[in-house]
Nucleic acid binder design. Structure first.
Lengths: 254, 254
DNA sequence: CGTATAATTGAGGCGAGTCAAATGCCGTGG
DNA sequence: CCACGGCATTTGACTCGCCTCAATTATACG
């Protein structure tokens, strides 16, 4: 049953061997995700206060930031790079529940402990906050709390779309809708729609879509052969015919 | 590709032909879900105020309460019965994203419009609130808002577990974990763990687990043959060997 | 009692998974 | 600069299990 290869020996960023950088910045006001992240709920002077309790974290590819079951001592906003969120079965099977992109928040679903593992897909930078500090900020600034709630609702809707994709779409439909979603998300970040950059591996995509690596690879090849996409390199996908690709995706709205 | 039969002609409870009952109660303080629902965040006198803007709704089996895309004018707490939440593809394929049980809240994932359809699985009763009223109550009672956020986070964790089940479990594992979850949920409601009552159809279960009716039915039969469960009737499942059933389920924690 | 719907069971095909191998890519070190 | 090794990706051959189609049995309801 689709036992996926686990990522080789990820280390936690919060353990002793990994440095935690504290930025002396003032960078928040000019942050690239200032308008997308939680902090969009706050005015510049309010963000300055938030910044005082903020720590910066950097991750190398495949490095784990938090692990399922760890006590939730911090929450994060991703500022650059990409993270994968995943759940594991005792026998090693893995389900990736989502990919975090700049502006996304880590900790939405968690209460006392992290409910899933978060690892870097590519070199990544995050803003970290002690949960106690964040709680204080939320008490002080109600809009911050509201925005977090809004983001949680959005994440829930995404998870439900994911349920549909996992439960009811055929492999080509899964891959096609994945490409369209990634394309749309890239656009939201001011990047081009068409040559979509996919920093994650085929295995990651497979573990996200409930498929095997081989099936994902074969499906890419099939879409290429059909002329719907081009593959300049394995991590770049050019969408040739968006309309047709959407048709293949089964018109899954997002 | 697994095209599921749609439920026959569901009508919306909010449309003209369906009566909306306004209870003259005072029943909240003695409500069966008083300690599980949103209202658990409020004291009895505060709930009394909530009650003043509350309307009661009853649903017959297969009747729709809200439909995907409808403007979200009301939110609900289910007090008795069971609802199914679902998403549909243009071609009729359906994914059930979850089942609502007494105490559960309808509207967690929605913003301006309902993101999914909610239909009654069995005769059901709900407390309804105009979104404007609920917003006012949340502004007044912060704990209400917090509890709603808590319930949203919980729903998100459930959806993620669902992603794992849909994407990575084999049919028998899916059915086994479904039975265990339903059993655990029944226990939370003070009902016996073992003869689990499943009011939904096999088709509903199939559309929830990403399978076909036939596969669900065959899997039930297999589990019965293996002596893990008994089936006094199609809607009652007696768990004979919980330990073994959990082993079949792949030890999916919930 | 008769009908409609749900659930089960059966037979068979196809497609995704499994196993295995080849190719491509990239960083390391000679 | 090139040789090597590890890893990701792709491709191939084959099997098995889930879906499809179809029929039968059971259940609920008038």
């Amino acid at each position: 049953m689709t036992a996926s290869t686990a990522v080789s020996g990820p280390k936690t960023a919060l353990s002793a061997d990994r440095p935690t950088y504290r930025q002396a910045c003032g960078a928040c006001s000019g942050c690239t995700v200032r308008r997308m992240a939680v902090c969009a709920a706050l005015a510049d002077d309010e963000v300055a206060e938030m910044e005082r309790v903020m720590s910066s974290f950097t991750l190398e590819p495949n490095q784990a930031l938090v692990e399922e079951g760890d006590p939730k001592r911090r929450v994060f906003t991703l500022t650059s790079g990409m993270l994968r969120l995943s759940l594991m079965l005792p026998d090693g099977r893995r389900q990736i529940t989502g990919f975090l992109m700049p502006g996304d928040y880590l900790g939405l679903s968690d209460d006392e402990v992290y409910s899933q593992t978060a690892e870097a897909v590519m070199p990544s930078v995050l803003c970290g906050f002690a949960t106690a500090d964040m709680d204080k900020l939320m008490e002080r600034y109600g809009r911050l709390k509201d925005r977090l709630h809004l983001m949680t609702r959005r994440a829930l809707r995404q998870a439900r779309e994911s349920q549909m994709i996992l439960g009811r779409l055929a492999p080509s439909e899964k891959v096609a809708s994945f490409l369209l979603v990634m394309s749309a998300r890239a656009a939201e970040h001011g990047q081009p729609e068409s040559p979509v950059h996919l920093p994650m591996t085929r295995t990651d995509i497979a573990d996200f879509l409930g498929l095997t690596v081989e099936t994902v690879s074969r499906t890419f090849t099939k879409l290429k052969t059909q002329g719907l996409i081009r593959l300049p390199d394995p991590h770049s996908v050019e969408i040739v015919d968006k309309r047709l690709l959407a048709a293949v995706a089964g018109n899954v709205a997002y």
